[in-house]
Every structure is written in C-alpha cells, then in structure tokens.
Design a protein around this nucleic acid. Structure first.
Length: 233
DNA sequence: AACTGCTCCAACCGCTACTAA
DNA sequence: CTTAGTAGCGGTTGGAGCAGT
C-alpha cells in the first residue's frame, strides 16, 4: 500500500514564510506540478503536500490575477452562482486568474452582502423576504444558528453532502443553485446564460467535466436566443 | 493611546470520488 | 472485491489589520 500523505507531527503549519514560498516556486519551476505527496520532501519543505498544493494554487501560481475584482467579474460570479450554486471551483474555472478560494472569499465578504443590501437573497437570487446573517463569522455564528433554527433552515452540511446538489424549496434557501430545483416554480432573473457549448477554462479534470456536463444537460438552456457564451470563452 | 468589534483572506479541516495495490 | 492513499472540493477558522469609540 501507499504511504500516507504526510506525517503531521513533522510538518510546519500556519502562514508560509518567504523562504518556503521561494522553495516551492523554485521546485515547481524546475519540475512542474507533480506528485504533491512527494513534493515537500523533494523541495526541502516541512509541509504537507496538501498544504503545498493549496499554497501554490491559491497564492503562488504565476497566472493569478489577484487584486480587486472587476465589475464584469462580479457580475459573472453572481450569474454563475445563480446557476451553479456554491460550486466555487466551477465558477472560478470561468474566471481566468481567479481561484476557487478567492471567489468563495469574495462572495462571502462582498457579493453576498451586496445582494442582501439590494434586497436579494444571495442563496437563491430571489427577492429577499428576510435578511440572513453572514455565514461564517465567529460573531455571527450564534446568531446564524439560532436564525437557522427559528427559520427552519436546512444546511447542506448537516443534511446532505454539499456536492449532492440536494435542495428544498421552501421559503428559505440553502445555498444550492435554484436551477437544480425546478419544482420551485420561482423565476430566476433573466440570466441569458448558455453553458452548453464551452469547456471550462481551467485544465478540467474528468470529475469536473462530468459534473459540469450533468449540470449543463440538466438545465442550462435558459433564455436562449443568444449565441453560446461569448463571455465564457 | 488603548480598547473593542468587525472585516478580510490565507490556511486548515473534513469529506468525497477516484485510483492503485 | 476490498482497502487505503491521493487529489480536489467546499466549509470553516484564526489572526492581522482597520475603523470607531
């Protein structure tokens, strides 16, 4: 059998130092992205492979944009979120130079609130009936859990795997795409999105492709007569 | 200046699907 | 077929930095 990915006792954790970054960059420049399990040792890093992978993908990759999101990027994220739900990697795949983590953080810190302030429920992109608290903050956790309880909110994490795309269509949203939920009968805003013809921009793994194809074949023909997605290519 | 509360984001955790042994 | 490792994903957390008092 294979060896475990890393021995947690012998690995550094927390913020990366400049030296660690340089070692990682240097190694990947020379050898390319490869086996993350063996990379740390080969690169002389006391990090777990998973941590290296994350650091590279989310921070060190040379093709990352970083910095503020442009208005059209924001717009695209909102549209894609309406379509795909919290599939951050799929959404990020449509935004060159952006990572799933970055998109997720930006959604949680900016776009969510922006939609709420516009009176739109960020979870289902419909006009809001009440304001949801922010999702993840220490200070809002108690509030959010009570809010969920009192509103009868079902969270994907509790009841079903996040990726299962399960949904209930009561008044309260659960963060999944409304498109997966035709029984709702609610109308989405006119998104003019057609994802049927394009491959993701990122180097798409089979898993993503499959998932995306499923999604696409399910319900992405909305409001067509537009030519397929110029903005996604 | 000191304190408090809030925001943001890098990093971690836990899970799943896939795959090798 | 079963078991265990790997890669990747989404959710969550910790802490630095900022703003308000």
């Amino acid at each position: 059998m294979r060896k475990p990915c890393c021995d947690k006792q012998d690995t550094n954790r927390g913020a990366w130092s400049k030296q660690e970054d340089l070692k990682l960059i240097d190694y990947i420049r020379k050898h390319g992205e490869g086996c993350w399990r063996t990379l740390p040792q080969a690169a002389g890093l006391l990090r777990c492979g998973k941590s290296c992978r994350l650091r590279w993908i989310n921070y060190l990759r040379p093709d990352l944009k970083r910095g503020n999101f442009a208005e059209d990027e924001e717009d695209l994220i909102v549209k894609l979120h309406a379509l795909l739900g919290n599939r951050w990697s799929l959404i990020a795949g449509r935004l060159p130079g952006r990572t799933d983590n970055e998109v997720k953080n930006y959604w949680n810190s900016h776009l969510r609130r922006k939609l709420i302030s516009m009176g739109i429920d960020p979870n289902n992109h419909r006009p809001n009936t009440f304001n949801l608290p922010r999702p993840h903050h220490k200070n809002s956790q108690a509030i959010s859990s009570t809010a969920k309880l009192s509103a009868g909110l079902k969270t994907p994490t509790n009841d079903q795997p996040a990726r299962s795309g399960g949904n209930n269509c009561d008044q309260v949203s659960d963060g999944t795409s409304c498109l997966e939920d035709e029984s709702c009968g609610h109308q989405l805003p006119d998104l003019n999105l057609d994802l049927t013809m394009t491959a993701p921009l990122s180097n798409s793994e089979p898993e993503n492709l499959k998932e995306e194809q499923n999604l696409m074949s399910l319900k992405c023909h909305r409001n067509l007569p537009r030519p397929p997605i110029s903005f996604l290519s």
